[in-house]
Computed example of a mutant assay.
Amino acid sequence: MKPGRTVLLALLGCLISGAALAHGEPERNTTRAVYAGKITNIPGKSLKVVEVLYNPGASAGSHTHAKSAFIYAYVLEGEVRSQVAGQPVRVYQVGEYWTEEPGAHHLISENASKTKPARLLATFVVDDEDAPLTVPDRK
């Protein structure tokens, strides 16, 4: 891996996991940057992939994502309860996915189980300079 990409991945992880802490809220899930790179055949766009681990009963809290971000979320483990504004609440199981349009308001993002972990892979197609990827709602 290129040294610059390693730094970018570390910063990406900090931006996402630190977003809740910036608003004085305790961390409720953990994230790990998996990949970040420019989409070479789409000038100005990048692909950023993040693994989100929800401990039993954990929640990400309501939030929005970067204004340019199109998101594809795929459940790897457990069950994830999710709701994007204008859509019904739904529980997604392993192998299921949902998408979020740019600027979507993510109202619910949580582990549906109080006893088992859940894990998803979130793939962002985003403008190169659009950050942070996740902004918690102000309380």
Rank of each mutant, 00 (worst) to 15 (best):
H106V: 14
S82R: 13
E101R: 15
P26K: 15
T115A: 05
A19M: 00
Q93L: 09
V49I: 15
A122C: 11
Q93K: 15
V84T: 12
S62A: 14
A73T: 09
R81L: 01
R138V: 06
L76C: 02
E101L: 15
V34M: 11
E110W: 07
A104C: 06
L47E: 12
D128F: 03
G24I: 04
N55W: 13
E100S: 13
G37W: 06
R119S: 14
K2F: 05
A22Q: 11
F70V: 08
D128T: 08
Y92I: 04
L9C: 05
S113H: 05
G13Q: 11
N55R: 14
S46T: 04
R81W: 00
R90N: 06
S62F: 04
V91K: 14
I71H: 00
I71L: 09
G61M: 11
V49D: 12
Y74H: 15
V135K: 14
Y92S: 14
R28S: 12
S17K: 03
K139E: 10
G4K: 08
R28D: 01
L11F: 06
G13F: 05
Q83F: 10
I71V: 15
K114H: 11
D130Y: 07
G37T: 06
Y35L: 15
C14S: 08
K45F: 01
P43M: 07
L8G: 07
L107S: 00
E27M: 13
V7L: 15
Q87V: 06
L8H: 12
L47F: 05
S46L: 04
P26T: 14
F124A: 06
L76F: 03
S59N: 15
Y74R: 11
V94Y: 06
E79R: 08
L121Q: 06
E96H: 05
E100V: 06
K139F: 03
A20L: 11
G18S: 05
V7A: 15
H106F: 05
G61D: 07
L9Y: 02
I42R: 13
V75W: 08
Y74V: 13
G78R: 08
R5M: 14
T40R: 11
E110G: 02
A36R: 02
E25R: 15
Q87H: 14
K38T: 10
I108T: 13
K48G: 03
V52L: 10
R32V: 05
E96W: 07
G103S: 12
I16T: 10
K45C: 00
F70H: 05
P56M: 11
K114P: 00
R81K: 04
